[in-house]
Nucleic acid binder design. Structure first.
Length: 948
RNA sequence: GGGUGUAUAGCUCAGUUGGUUAGAGCGCUACAUUGACAUUGUAGAGGUCCCCGGUUCAAAUCCAGGUACACCCACCA
């Protein structure tokens, strides 16, 4: 045993202690002696994009608390750590780094770019792992998972194929949320809304006035909508009108729809199906033509006439100026509206039409007779899964019931590739891997994606012509060709179709200089043409006589170049590769995460696990709140109010940080955190340290005390009763997820009961070594899940081999209520005496004469009280009016009497209570115990006033 | 527009199924310092439990209405 320092210095011990734990192998449940049932948490994987923030630290604290509690209880505790490849987030980050280096992903090409991402992820994963350890997390690193490792990729692909086969996934041409910055689609729940000031333009629009905040989209209107009961416009409904907008001609059909608000704006809506979700729906109902106006980079396409090539804002300015010149702007109002922005980069979302993969949530699963949505709702409704706090049930149902099909393909490179291959004659092959795809395709060779659009554009500056139809446009980074290829643009598509090409047909492209064929264009859809090529500069490229020759020689299969942003299989994947783990540890016990993730992820995990495994993913969802700053503001980099958990851990110790995150937090409720609070718990940790130090230094022999020692005095009985009560309550609280309450009770027992009272008494009564050691050892166990480091360090002083981490959770012994009552009398007597001294300005060092008398306390306890209160106990009754304390009386040589306020309060209380007791209804209705207590308290109050 | 939550001491928050004279931490005031700990101890001051009704013998707690704030969902032409 070594001498303990005066104050606990966390940084001196924490890293070593963590190492000891980790090397013991006991984070792995297979190595535990435990016979209990499994308790499993899979860590919601933090993004592999950077550093741990307070939200993660809080999550880790709650999860570790549960896991350590169950491990101590003897359960087979498993906590699986992991990281998330976070497709869009990670790609965005790396792209930012590339931008600084003056390059971009297209210049690098797919392979090199992915290499860079992997490099980046590896280094940030290292950071995350280090910081997770710093928080003391007792997770099983041997089972660590990554959302992008082989197991999960396999799971994602298999799930994709299964869903495709069940008709739950389909490729379709629909309106999607498009982020021009990320150049990718987004799911509905990845779109955020921000209120902003906007202008509402009233545009003269044929016989109407149309109000809009986005005038430029009017260039692609194909309809104009009014309310069916709007008499002003009834006569136009059904007509097709030619509208002139500052010289730009459009053709619109007038439709009537109940969705239109007669009172908003002019009551007339220009319908732009390709660039507004609601307009798209209107177009579906009324069969309107869809004209795409804005391309994927946020620029106006050819359909925008003279505004072609302009970005959206520029086009708006010019178009409005032109309308003004033409006298077509009636007025401009200022309004507030919600702008849709990308959750990752805050770029305004551009809704546009595109061909993508969608999950169909309402489609019945053939073998189950239920839809994905129904599976997810039933799992919670049937009570299989419990959500804490309960009220989030409602939010869950509401969200689920309103869930609609969501787009799962993302046009980024970092992520799970969509397991789909296409042949050039329009065949679609969906298979879990290339080998399988090959089989399905009749063992034709699958190409990698050398021949994607991206590669092609970066290759050259040739002029092309197709057989039979010359294309005059240049290629390279030329946007014109994008338009041809990515389609949706009206003129080109129709011209192609008019030329007699049909869907699935391939057009071979030739080099106009050498007249040799070196590529082909494929028409996959009347609105979409896919372009593939073979780069003539690349080794091994082929040249073909004509398209038939091409097809004969190179029937190739092309992988889908998109990825799916789908890690919803996390819940069970962590055990996916090990069948025995799946049997033993699935479903997991608790999914602990922030309430902001309920929809994003928790709901989808429930849906997918129910679908794929036909089981629930977990028993309980524990939702913690958000951590805010002292003023209740969200912590963010831009506000500079963020608290770095690692810095706090270094300054105050991880234990202090953990306690400050646990105490004062309730599930689903936000919590404020600030340095003073952490400092407060640092003080507590230090208090526990010094309590231990005192016990060790005052003990003759530091040893483990196996059985509860015999209590010799009232104080002994009292502290053991309190301790047993504490064990019982904390065990119950932890089972019921009442973490904050449990922490508060430990804090109170340790500091108030043990340190302030019992330790002080032990200095007077002596001979308490066994009881103190007995309590300390078990108190450390109780505290361990909250503050693992300091408890383990103190435990080392007992010189045992076994780690604190795997000790036995104490069982509560007997609680003697009478003892607690009697001891409370003693405490109040002491407090009153101290109070009297303080009020009368008697210095603590002086010992005024005092005579004590009590109905329930023996003389030796009155002596104890006198010592603690620092008064001189005499036999003679001091000649003053006695002061009553419950069942005791104090005769003390002081002038002090009750203050006026005290007297008034007491008299008021007496009056009220007497009235209460006189009330017949109270006496007849209230339980006898309540009446008795009331009477007792009344008597005590009267004693105090009268000094009897 | 729909939903959820919060409102208790100067600040941050507890307050279980209604039943002590409503609690804690921080801060504040006064005092204390030689041995566990100043990251301390002792004591004190500090409250219209948001407002208004109702239920009840009894309401911070339950119900209805209102106010303020926060968040979520939808819409925003």
């Amino acid at each position: 045993m070594q001498e303990l320092a005066k104050a606990y210095e966390p940084t001196k011990y924490e890293d070593d202690i963590y190492k000891t734990w980790e090397e013991s192998g006991l984070f792995d449940p297979d190595k535990l002696k435990a016979k209990g049932k499994p308790f499993v948490i899979s860590m919601p994987p933090p993004n592999a994009t950077g550093i741990l923030h307070l939200g993660h630290a809080a999550a880790l604290a709650y999860e570790d608390l549960m896991v350590r509690f169950h491990r101590l209880k003897g359960d087979k505790a498993l906590w699986v750590p992991g990281t998330d490849h976070a497709a869009i987030a990670t790609q965005t980050k790396v792209e930012k780094i590339l931008a600084i280096e003056g390059t971009d992903r297209k210049k690098l090409g797919r392979e090199k770019f992915l290499g860079r991402v992997k490099e980046y992820v590896a280094s940030s994963q290292g950071t995350i792992r280090k910081q997770t350890r710093k928080m003391g997390s007792s997770c099983d690193w041997s089972r660590e998972r990554y959302t992008f490792d082989d197991g999960l990729s396999k799971a994602v692909n298999q799930a994709f194929v299964k869903m495709y086969d069940d008709g739950l996934i389909e490729r379709d041409y629909r309106i999607v949320n498009w982020c021009p910055r990320c150049a990718s689609t987004l799911a509905d729940d990845e779109v955020e809304h921000k209120e902003q000031d906007a202008k509402l333009y009233y545009i003269k629009y044929g016989p109407f006035v149309v109000a809009t905040t986005r005038p430029e989209t009017k260039l692609a209107d194909t309809g104009v909508a009014v309310h069916p009961s709007d008499r002003r416009y009834k006569k136009y409904v059904g007509q097709e009108l030619d509208i002139d907008l500052a010289g730009h001609k459009i053709k619109v059909k007038v439709i009537a729809d109940k969705e239109i608000d007669k009172r908003f704006g002019s009551g007339v809506v220009g319908v732009t199906p390709a660039h507004s979700t609601t307009d798209y729906e209107l177009a579906q109902r009324h069969d309107l033509e869809i004209i795409k106006l804005i391309d994927e980079s946020g620029h106006i396409m050819k359909t925008g006439g003279k505004y072609k090539g302009k970005n959206v804002l520029q086009a708006r300015r010019e178009f409005v100026a032109d309308l003004e010149k033409a006298g077509q702007i009636e007025k401009i109002d200022s309004i507030k509206n919600n702008l849709s922005i990308c959750y990752r980069c805050d770029t305004p979302i551009e809704p546009l039409t595109s061909e993508q993969w969608f999950v169909r949530v309402n489609k019945k699963i053939p073998s189950r007779g239920k839809s994905l949505k129904e599976l997810a709702i039933n799992a919670v409704k049937g009570g299989d899964i419990e959500i804490l706090p309960k009220r989030f049930d409602k939010t869950y149902y509401h969200w689920m019931e309103n869930l609609h099909d969501w787009c799962i393909s993302r046009q980024i490179w970092w992520g799970h590739r969509i397991p789909v291959w296409y042949t050039e004659d329009g065949e679609v092959i969906v298979a879990p891997n290339e080998t399988e795809a090959n089989k399905k395709a009749g063992n034709k060779k699958l190409t990698q994606d050398k021949d994607t659009l991206d590669t092609w554009f970066s290759s050259s500056l040739w002029t092309f012509s197709t057989l039979g139809w010359p294309i005059q446009n240049k290629i390279g980074l030329d946007k014109d060709l994008v338009k041809i290829v990515e389609s949706g643009e009206k003129t080109k598509t129709y011209r192609l179709a008019d030329k007699g090409y049909s869907i699935g047909e391939t057009i071979v492209v030739e080099n106009t200089q050498t007249k040799k064929n070196f590529g082909y264009i494929k028409i996959t859809n009347i609105q979409k043409i896919k372009f593939k090529d073979v780069d003539p500069k690349q080794k091994g490229h082929e040249e073909y006589k004509d398209k038939d020759d091409f097809k004969k020689t190179f029937k190739k299969y092309y992988p889908d170049k998109d990825i799916t942003d789908n890690t919803d299989l996390w819940a069970y994947d962590f055990v996916y590769s090990k069948k025995s783990d799946l049997d033993l540890f699935h479903p997991s016990s608790v999914m602990e995460t922030g309430y902001d993730i309920l929809f994003f992820w928790v709901a989808r995990m429930i849906m997918m696990t129910e679908y794929v495994l036909e089981t629930k993913p977990f028993d309980t969802v524990y939702l913690h709140g958000m951590i805010r700053d002292k003023d209740g503001k969200k912590m963010s980099k831009s506000l500079g109010n963020g608290i770095d958990p690692i810095k706090m851990s270094e300054k105050f110790g991880t234990d202090a940080l953990r306690l400050s995150l646990i105490i004062g937090s309730a599930p689903g409720a936000d919590m404020r955190l600030y340095e003073d609070k952490i400092a407060g718990y640092r003080n507590f940790v230090n208090k526990l340290w010094n309590i231990s130090r005192f016990i060790f230094t005052s003990a003759d022999n530091v040893k483990r005390v196996k059985k509860q020692p015999r209590a010799k005095t009232l104080a002994d009985k009292w502290i053991l009763s309190e301790f047993n009560e504490t064990i019982k309550e904390i065990s119950e609280d932890l089972e019921k997820f009442h973490f904050s309450e449990a922490g508060t009770k430990l804090y109170h027992f340790t500091w108030d009961d043990l340190a302030d009272w019992y330790l002080e008494i032990s200095k007077i009564e002596k001979d308490k070594e066994e009881i103190l050691l007995y309590i300390l050892e078990r108190l450390l166990v109780l505290c361990h899940p909250f503050i693992p480091f300091v408890t383990e360090v103190i435990w080392e002083q007992f010189g045992e081999k076994e780690l604190m981490m795997v000790k036995e959770w104490p069982k509560a012994g007997k609680v003697d209520k009478d003892v607690i009552t009697n001891f409370t009398e003693l405490k109040e007597l002491v407090v009153s005496l101290r109070n009297l001294k303080a009020e009368n300005k008697i210095p603590p060092t002086e010992f005024p004469d005092c005579n004590l008398d009590s109905k329930i306390l023996d003389k030796k306890y009155l002596e104890l009280a006198a010592k603690m209160a620092r008064v001189n106990l005499t036999d003679k009754k001091v000649n003053v009016k006695p002061i009553a304390i419950n069942s005791s009386k104090v005769f003390i040589d002081l002038t002090k009497e009750l203050s006026d306020k005290e007297k008034q309060d007491l008299e008021k209380y007496i009056k009220n209570t007497e009235a209460k007791l006189a009330n017949e209804k109270f006496v007849s209705n209230a339980p006898p115990q309540v009446i008795e207590d009331t009477k007792k308290r009344l008597a005590e109050a009267k004693n105090k006033v009268n000094g009897q």
